[in-house]
Structures are given as C-alpha cells and as structure tokens.
Amino acid sequence: MSDPNDRHRNPPLLQVDALGCERDERSLFVGLSFTASAGDIWQVAGPNGAGKTTLLRILAGLFGFYEGRLHWQLPATLRESMLYLGHRPGLREELTPLENLTWLSALHGQKQDAALMAALSAVGLGGFETLPVAHLSAGQKRRVALARLWLPGKPVWILDEPFTAIDAEGVALVEAQLRRHAAAGGLVIYTSHHQLAADTRQIMLGAHMPGSGAPA
C-alpha cells in the first residue's frame, strides 16, 4: 500500500497487487501489495525460506508462477530499465572481472572499458581487473558484481543479498551508492538482513502479512 503520509511526489514505478506465490507445496506469500516509486529504497526482509529471492525473481520477470498483478510503469521495457543482481554473483570464474563486465555491459548496450575500469576501482578492485575471478575471494567476487551499480542507465535496481560476503567498509560503500541512486530518482529493491538507516521501506515476508508500506 502507498504510505499514508504521502511524502513523495514522484510517480509510482511499480504497483504490486495481491501478489501470491506457492512453491514446493508451500505458500510463500499471499496478498502482497505495495507501490514503489522513484526515489524509494525497499528492503525485502524475512527469515530464510520466506520467499525473498522468489519475490525478487518474480519482480525481475524470471519467475512466472504467481498470482496477482504486477504493474511496471517505466519509460522503456523492464529489461531495458532494470539491473538485476542475483544471490549468485553471475560471473564466470575463468574470466577476469573486466571480461565478465564487458560481456554484461555489451548485452545491456552500456559504455565499455573506461567506465568499467572506473566502476571496478570504485568498488576497490583497481589492479584486479585482469586476474581471473576464480582467484578472487568471495567478498571480492561480490564486489565485481556490485561494480555494475556504478554503471549508469538503469533506473530500477533489484538486488538479491547485495551485502553478502563484503566487509564493513564495502557495506558502507554500497549503501552510499544505493542512497545516491535513490536520491537521483532511481528505485532500489533489495533483500538483506542488513537494514539501511532511516527512510527505507520494508516488506516483511514469512509472517503471512501483507507487505506494509510503513517506513521502518
């Protein structure tokens, strides 16, 4: 539901209406409704197995077995506008960070090389660009995937556990980037046990209650 004290004048980007999903004989969530607008940061929270990943996959258009309605209001198609990072980093171990990102940004028609190098050094991986991903630590791999947050052109970010495996300094770095994105009129929807301060909105899963739009 949209929150009572309608703080934002921004138009809604995503309306979710009575979303329900069942998986492996178990109902994950029922009657989930919320409206997300440009400038919002939404945290999907809940215990393990509550369906956080499934919810994000449904929003990203990867999972089609659900009830209810999703309504994206975007200037371009969802896939043009969306950056989706799954709970697996989405990198091939044999390739270097730069090669991985080059392919991904080519698929998305984004700028190459210079921007990618800048993004990698922004996440603190300057000097690791040409080392195969297999040689990196889990936290560094996550940082490679997160480097795409520093590439422009995607208003909607859907991030599954972006803070996993990265250290406190990395968390702060990513958090700042999420805020910058929201402040610039983007939408962030992420799952994590880590809560950003103040103005994030929460969707609680697992308690079988409709998502509340109240600021946490």
């Binding site: 995503l14 258009g61 089609g64 659900y66 309605r69 999703l70 309504h71 994206w72 209001q73 975007l74 198609t77 969802l78 896939r79």
Partner: peptide, 12 residues
Amino acid sequence: MQDSRAEHRSQA
C-alpha cells in the same frame, strides 16, 4: 506500460 505479467509474457 501494461501489466508486467503480460509484459513479461509478451517480452518472452
């Protein structure tokens, strides 16, 4: 944009 479910479908 229409219903995203329909949109996914049509995109697919």
